[in-house]
Computed example of a mutant assay.
Amino acid sequence: MAIVCRTGAVTRADQTHTPLELPLADPLGADIATTYLEVFSGKAASLDVGIWETDPGRSRWDFTDSGEVIYVISGRMTVTEDGKEPQHIEPGDLVVFPVGWAGFWEVTEPLKKVYVIFE
């Protein structure tokens, strides 16, 4: 059976509220509020799929042990991989952070995304 999540119907009230913190990411400055709804988790925890929202803020990400694919539903951010040029991300963008990616996320507008975390 396919797992279907009508992303447009998911509100922050449907999601788990948590601050952005390690080991996921290191917020740089004030606390950054986030919410998420896990849609799927693999048996061996090697695949997690869900919806995640965050308030604006700057954070450091290090995908040492896993990678992430995101589809941006709303909001904007700039991602800057260490040693690379910044990339501007907006609604409708599909972004892959491969295993080994490290750098900064600067969320400039409240962001809502679908995520797939893989090992």
Results as ranks from 00 to 15, higher is better:
103 G>K: 04
5 C>L: 15
112 K>C: 07
67 G>T: 04
47 L>V: 11
90 E>L: 04
6 R>G: 01
93 D>V: 00
48 D>P: 00
28 L>D: 04
21 E>D: 12
5 C>A: 15
115 Y>A: 05
7 T>Q: 06
32 I>W: 11
53 E>A: 02
42 G>R: 09
27 P>R: 05
71 Y>V: 15
79 V>G: 00
95 V>I: 15
63 F>W: 10
113 K>Q: 06
117 I>D: 05
73 I>P: 04
75 G>P: 05
43 K>N: 14
115 Y>F: 15
82 D>I: 13
111 L>S: 03
119 E>R: 14
46 S>G: 15
66 S>F: 15
79 V>F: 10
101 W>E: 08
42 G>M: 08
107 V>I: 15
55 D>K: 13
72 V>N: 07
40 F>A: 07
117 I>M: 13
32 I>S: 06
24 L>H: 08
44 A>Q: 11
22 L>P: 11
19 P>H: 01
45 A>C: 01
10 V>N: 01
89 I>Q: 02
90 E>S: 11
42 G>F: 06
64 T>I: 01
73 I>H: 13
8 G>N: 09
73 I>N: 07
76 R>Q: 13
14 D>T: 11
61 W>R: 10
87 Q>D: 12
22 L>H: 08
106 E>S: 10
95 V>L: 06
66 S>T: 12
84 K>H: 12
65 D>V: 02
43 K>I: 08
111 L>G: 03
1 M>F: 04
70 I>T: 14
28 L>N: 02
93 D>M: 09
113 K>R: 08
110 P>Q: 08
109 E>A: 12
23 P>H: 01
102 A>L: 02
30 A>T: 13
12 R>A: 10
2 A>S: 11
39 V>W: 00
12 R>Y: 07
